[in-house]
C-alpha cells in the first residue's frame, strides 16, 4: 500500500447530508460519534463542510426541493470522494415509497443513487451506529483505491 492509499484509508473525513429523512439516521450518525463508538480511533471525524470531506453520508428520501442542493453539495466535494447511503429511505424510499410501486412518490426526488453515484448502501431503519461505522470503513477502502 502506497502512502497515498494509506493516507486516504487512515483519515476519512465524513460529511453528513440530511436529505428529508426522519432524523432517525441523523441521530444514529450523531450517536456513532459518541464515546461508545468513537470513530476517531480510526481517524474518522465529522466535518460540517463538504469541501473538507471525503465521504458523504446521505440519509432520507431526498425530497424534490432537495435534489439541486444535494447535487451541488456533492459537486463541492473535491475528488476522490465516496457516498454512503444510510437507511432504507436513502436506498429505495423505504416506508415513504407509495404502495402502487409505479415509481417514487410525488414528493420524492430520490433514491439517492438516482441523483449522485452511491458507493456503499447501509440498510436499516435506522442502521445501528456500528453498521454506520462499518459502512464508513467500507467506503474508505473504496476511496483508497480511487485515483
Amino acid at each position: 500500500m502506497g502512502l497515498k492509499q494509506k493516507a486516504r484509508l487512515y483519515s476519512p473525513w465524513v460529511f453528513h447530508a440530511h436529505c428529508s429523512g426522519c432524523n432517525g439516521c441523523g441521530i444514529e450518525i450523531a450517536a456513532a460519534l459518541n464515546p461508545r463508538y468513537d470513530p476517531e480511533r480510526i481517524g474518522v471525524t465529522l466535518h460540517n463542510n463538504p469541501r473538507h470531506a471525503d465521504i458523504m453520508l446521505v440519509e432520507g428520501i431526498v425530497a424534490k426541493q432537495h435534489v439541486p442542493f444535494l447535487k451541488r453539495t456533492y459537486e463541492q466535494m473535491p475528488t476522490p470522494k465516496a457516498v454512503v447511503a444510510i437507511g432504507s429511505c436513502a436506498i429505495t424510499g423505504g416506508v415513504f415509497k407509495p404502495d402502487d410501486d409505479k415509481g417514487p412518490s410525488y414528493t420524492q426526488g430520490g433514491p439517492v443513487d438516482r441523483i449522485i453515484p452511491v458507493d456503499v448502501y447501509v440498510p436499516g431503519c435506522p442502521p445501528k451506529p456500528e453498521a454506520i461505522i462499518d459502512g464508513i470503513i467500507k467506503a474508505a477502502i473504496i476511496l483508497s483505491k480511487r485515483d
Binding site: 454512503v84 447511503a85 436506498i91 429505495t92 433514491p111 443513487d113 452511491v118 458507493d119 456503499v120 448502501y121 447501509v122 440498510p123 436499516g124 442502521p127 445501528k128 456500528e130 453498521a131 462499518d134 459502512g135 467500507k138 473504496i142
Partner: peptide, 13 residues
C-alpha cells in the same frame, strides 16, 4: 444481524 452494509454496483441488495 445488523451489519448489512453492501457496496454497489446498483442498489440491489
Amino acid at each position: 444481524k445488523f451489519e448489512l452494509a453492501y457496496t454497489g454496483p446498483g442498489s440491489q441488495n
